[in-house]
Simulated assay, not measured.
Amino acid sequence: MARNNKINYIEIPAQNIVATKAFFGEVFDWSFVDYGPDYCSFAAQGVDGGFFISDLVVSTKTGSPLIVLYSNELETTQNKIEKAGGKIIKPTFSFPGGRRFHFSDPNGNEYAVWSE
């Protein structure tokens, strides 16, 4: 696949890197590479990226882009998110092509999960 002019990497703020890695590892089975105490990266999750220490949060209310993950089993993923300390901030709703919900991670960052 050609990389030229394509989204290649995304960096997300996190107040707590340890909690972030635990949450995404438990819920989505992500693994991380640490680059010191203030940064970790992830790969092969649709797009590669990383988390950096920051007091800021990602929220559609403030105009941030929404990172949307896919799940084959929407309800199972929602249960895992809640069990791992995430909060559902917009309950599951239907849209043309599927269903989705929005959640916040332990840092307060907003994400969505959708399914067909």
Rank of each mutant, 00 (worst) to 15 (best):
N72S: 13
K61T: 11
F51L: 04
F93V: 09
A43W: 07
T20F: 02
V68D: 03
L69Y: 11
E75S: 12
V27N: 00
D105Q: 07
V27H: 01
Y111V: 05
R100E: 14
E73Y: 08
F51M: 05
K80I: 03
I53F: 10
N16E: 10
P106L: 07
F28P: 11
V33F: 04
C40D: 05
G49D: 01
D34T: 09
V18Q: 15
S41W: 01
K80S: 10
S54M: 07
F51T: 02
P106D: 10
E26I: 00
M1F: 11
S94P: 04
F93D: 06
A22G: 05
E110Y: 04
S54C: 07
T76V: 13
V57F: 03
D55T: 14
D48P: 03
H102I: 08
N16G: 01
E11M: 12
T76Y: 05
I10Y: 01
I88Q: 08
R3F: 14
A14N: 02
V68K: 01
I88F: 10
I89G: 00
V33L: 12
G36R: 04
M1Q: 06
H102V: 12
G49E: 04
Y70N: 13
W114S: 11
K87V: 11
T60L: 02
G97H: 11
I88H: 09
N72M: 11
I89N: 08
G85P: 01
E11V: 09
G98R: 12
K61H: 10
F23V: 04
N5K: 06
E11G: 00
I53P: 00
A14M: 05
G50N: 09
S71V: 05
E116I: 11
D48V: 03
F28S: 07
G63R: 08
Y39P: 02
P91N: 14
E110P: 01
N5G: 00
V113K: 02
I10A: 05
R3S: 14
F95D: 09
V18M: 11
L69H: 07
P96Q: 13
K90M: 14
K61E: 14
Y35H: 14
N109F: 09
D55K: 13
Y111T: 05
S71Q: 02
Y39T: 02
D55E: 15
N72I: 08
A2G: 12
I88W: 10
I88D: 08
N72C: 05
R3E: 12
T62H: 08
E73Q: 12
I12A: 01
V33A: 12
G108R: 04
E73H: 11
S115T: 15
C40I: 15
I17V: 08
V57M: 03
